[in-house]
Design a protein around this nucleic acid. Sequence first.
DNA 1: AAGTATTAATCAAACGTTTGTTTAGTTTTT
DNA 2: AAAAACTAAACAAACGTTTGATTAATACTT
Lengths: 210, 210
Amino acid sequence: MMQANSIEKSDKRQHLIQVAELLFAQHGYEAVSIRQLAKEAGVNLAMISYYFGSKEGLFAAILENKIPRTREKLEEIMAQTTDPWERIARTVDIYVDSMFSNHSFSRVITREMSTRQRPDNVKLIVEHISKNMRIIRGFMEEGQASGQFRDVDNNLTLASFFGTLTTMINNTGMMCMLSGEVDEAVIYTERYKDRVRAHLKSMLNHHLIP
Amino acid sequence: MMQANSIEKSDKRQHLIQVAELLFAQHGYEAVSIRQLAKEAGVNLAMISYYFGSKEGLFAAILENKIPRTREKLEEIMAQTTDPWERIARTVDIYVDSMFSNHSFSRVITREMSTRQRPDNVKLIVEHISKNMRIIRGFMEEGQASGQFRDVDNNLTLASFFGTLTTMINNTGMMCMLSGEVDEAVIYTERYKDRVRAHLKSMLNHHLIP
DNA sequence: AAGTATTAATCAAACGTTTGTTTAGTTTTT
DNA sequence: AAAAACTAAACAAACGTTTGATTAATACTT
């Protein structure tokens, strides 16, 4: 009974987080008012300040739930494989998968990251992501140390990798117009994900391996 | 004094555009209020609606001034060179130059493009940019037709090209953290631009040329 | 176990700003 | 005198946050 209660409580808080994640993903952070949010979640709008202190606090709570996932998968790669190129290839698989599966929220994150507003959120995001990027850079450095990889500009290579994905996700409008496609949903199909994976692997392969 | 006034007046519209471009670039579109804008420009805030109809109209006026430049340069390439790879290489030069020189405003544009808000502006931007991208894709297709280029995924290659640049410009925070750099201004130095040019050319070269 | 005191959760209403836009009137140009 | 340029003030809507009261849950005392 004490357990049941605390679960219920954390459930409401969690519910608010889930609804917020969905709405932020659909319309962007600043486009969603806490009134809209509270209405959609079926709670009083004062509860947002009550639970999270502020709208920004709510956003931070969402982040806290989301970001650690990718890190774990990268560490899995480190544990399971040693070959530098295989590590890169699996990294591509992981990132395409996680960013396309959560494309709406990925858009919120990358958009928020590029904003100069709300520095607390920006700092949180940038720190997490660049930590992951350092791991990937480690993969490249190992390949270079063993002579399997070219001595490329690693940081800019990361920018190309990350930038390809964010462009696909944030600028669906442009990608569709390029493809002569009208339905944006096509971008998020499995078939398209395969294309992105193949492209990134091919490009990085020719870039990294002499 | 009378002369000075009349000159100022005829220039007032243009002055408003210039100040707005600067402020939007510095803080982003929605972060700049028309009050702040009018104050900075030294005009009454009603003049924005008077001249441009709305804040959004002002933004459109800025775009109208800015975007055509790159197109002209691409057409210059088409006129001056025929070798596919040389065309690509010169395209890299042009884009690195124009996006880094106007990095603040480029950020506004790419940010605005990825927003779902303000569809009129988005449409305007996407149409212009994807028209340019089509030209660049034409360069790649010619290289492929003549057998000099690999048969890569052209649209995704464009995403990598464009994404690399926008990531450099929009996510300076992440790039700095990766480089262990504290001063963001370093990203926009000539030395850095050279690095980006070299990276993009090298990557695209290995990607495109067998 | 019953009753009381404390704390947590919830709510409706209002707060004080800020936003983009419009009005109604004045000054300046033509 | 007609038209264009300009202004101060007001407008209505939206924003995130706070308040003060009410209900539900928990702890403590007897």
